[in-house]
Amino acid sequence: MAQADQQIQNDNGSNVRADLNNNFDALFSNNSGSSEPSVTTAFMWFADTTNDALKIRNAADSAFITVGTLSETNLGLAVKASPAFTGNVTIPAGTVSSLPLSFTGDTDTGFFKNADNEFTIVTGGTRRAHFDTNGITIRDRKALRFRDTSNSNFVAIRAPDNAAADITLTLPSSDGNANDVLQSDGSGNLSFAALPQAVPTGSVHLMAGNNVPSGYLKCNGQAVSQTTYAALYQVIGATYGQTATTFNLPDLRGEFVRGWDDSRGVDSGRDFGSAQGHEFFSHNHVITDPGHSHSINDPGHFHNVAYTNSDNGDGVIEESGTGFNGFEPTENATTNISINLNHTGISIQNQGSEARPRNIAMMYVIKT
C-alpha cells in the first residue's frame, strides 16, 4: 500500500530516490490505503482497503466513484454476455418520464419506484399497473387477459366504467356443483349456489300468439312421453291421465281456470285438476208492473122479457086475450164498456248454451 503527493522535491540523492520510489509505489498500487489520497487528480485510481473497493476519480476531480469490489471476480460486475448477478442490485427510483430500468430502443417502457414498497409498470410512457402491499392494481380500466392454450383467444376481466366505491370479490373455497352459479353475500364474498329455475316446470302461462315457444307444450290434453318429458311428469304425474309410457297434459282449450279450493270450503269436494261442468245458482226473477187498464166495448144487445096473458099479479107483461105467452125483446141499448188485451212488455227467455263473462281467446301453454 502506498500513497504519494505526486511531487518530487529537490533534495539529496537518497531522498530524491525515496521520493521517486514512493510515487511509483503509489502509482503501481492504485494509491491504495484506508483513506482517500490527500492529493488527487482527475481519473486517478484509488484502492480503498477499508471496504475492498476499487475507485476512480471523477472528471471534475471532486469525488471518487466506486468501480467494483477487488476481491470478487470481474470486480463483482456482470460481463456483457449472459451476466449472472449476485448480491443486491439497486437502481434509482426514477419517474414515469425517466425510467431507471427500460429497454434499448424502447425507453418509454420499463419500471420505476412510485412510492415505498411499490413499483409501477410503464408502457408507452403511461402507467399501466403497479404492485404494492395490497396486491396488483391494473389502472385505467385495462383488462386482465387469460389466453387459451393456442394463444389465439382470451378471456378478460376488467373494472366497470365508474365504480361507486372500492369492491373486493373473494372467490369461494370450492368449485361447487354442476350448474351452480356464483352469488355474493353483499360484502363481496362469493359462493356457489344452485341456479334457481326462472320458470318452474309445470307452470301454466297464457300466450297472446298461437305459436308454442321452445320449452313449452300446448295445454290440449295430448298424451306425451314420460321419458322425454320426465321433469314435467315428475310434477303433474297422472293428474290428467296416463298410460304405461305416457301421461296427459291438462286440456284448457275453451276453459276458464278456477283456483283449487284446497280445504277452504268455497268449492269443496273437488280433487286437484278435476273438471267441473257449468251450473246456475238457484235464483228468482222479480217482475214489477207499473200498472195497466182493460177497456170493454159493447156494440149493442137485447134482453128478452118473458110474458103471459094471465093477469095474475106476477109483474110480467101481459097481452089481451088468453092462452098466449112468450118473450118480448127490450129496446136495443149499449153499455159503452169494452175490454182490450194489454201487454206489460216483460218477457223471460232462455238464450245460449252457457253462462260466461266477457272474454278474449288466448292459448294456454305449460313449461316442460
Results as ranks from 00 to 15, higher is better:
Met1Leu: 12
Gln3Thr: 01
Gln6Met: 09
Gln7His: 10
Gln9Pro: 14
Asp11Asn: 14
Asn21Leu: 06
Ala26Tyr: 07
Asn30Cys: 03
Ser32Gln: 12
Gly33Met: 02
Trp45Ile: 04
Asp48Lys: 08
Thr49Ser: 15
Asp52Ile: 09
Asp52Thr: 12
Lys55Asn: 15
Lys55Ile: 09
Ile56Met: 14
Arg57Gln: 15
Asn58Phe: 13
Asn58Gln: 13
Asn58Ala: 13
Ala59Ser: 15
Thr66His: 09
Ser71Gln: 09
Glu72Ile: 02
Thr73Ser: 15
Leu75Thr: 00
Lys80Glu: 13
Pro83Ala: 12
Thr86Trp: 09
Val89Tyr: 05
Ala93Tyr: 09
Leu99Ala: 11
Leu101Ala: 01
Ser102Arg: 06
Phe112Glu: 03
Ala115Gly: 13
Asp116Phe: 04
Glu118Leu: 02
Phe119Tyr: 15
Arg127Val: 04
Asp140Asn: 12
Arg141His: 05
Arg141Thr: 11
Asn151Ser: 12
Asn153Glu: 10
Phe154Pro: 04
Ala163Leu: 08
Asp166Asn: 13
Ser173Gln: 07
Ser173Ile: 08
Ser173Ala: 10
Ser173Thr: 13
Ser174Val: 08
Asp175Arg: 11
Gly176Thr: 04
Asn179Tyr: 06
Leu182Glu: 00
Gln183Asn: 08
Gln183Pro: 07
Ser191Arg: 06
Phe192Lys: 00
Phe192Gln: 02
Leu195Trp: 04
Asn211Asp: 04
Ala230Lys: 11
Ala230Phe: 06
Gln234Ser: 15
Val235Trp: 11
Gly237Ile: 11
Gly237Glu: 10
Gly241Pro: 05
Ala244Tyr: 06
Ala244Met: 07
Thr245Leu: 01
Phe256Lys: 11
Arg258Trp: 06
Gly259Glu: 12
Val266Asp: 15
Asp267Pro: 06
Ser268Phe: 10
Asp271Gln: 02
Ala275Val: 03
Gln276Ala: 14
Gly277Cys: 01
Gly277Thr: 05
Phe281Pro: 06
Asn284Phe: 01
Pro290Met: 05
Pro290Asp: 12
Ser295Cys: 10
Asn297Asp: 14
Asn297Met: 00
Tyr307Pro: 02
Asp311Leu: 13
Ser320Glu: 15
Phe327Gln: 02
Phe327Ser: 06
Pro329Ile: 00
Thr334Val: 09
Thr335Glu: 10
Asn336Phe: 07
His343Glu: 03
Ile348Pro: 02
Ile348Ser: 07
Gln349Ser: 11
Gln351Gly: 02
Gly352Trp: 08
Gly352Tyr: 09
Pro357Arg: 11
Arg358Ala: 15
Tyr364Asn: 01
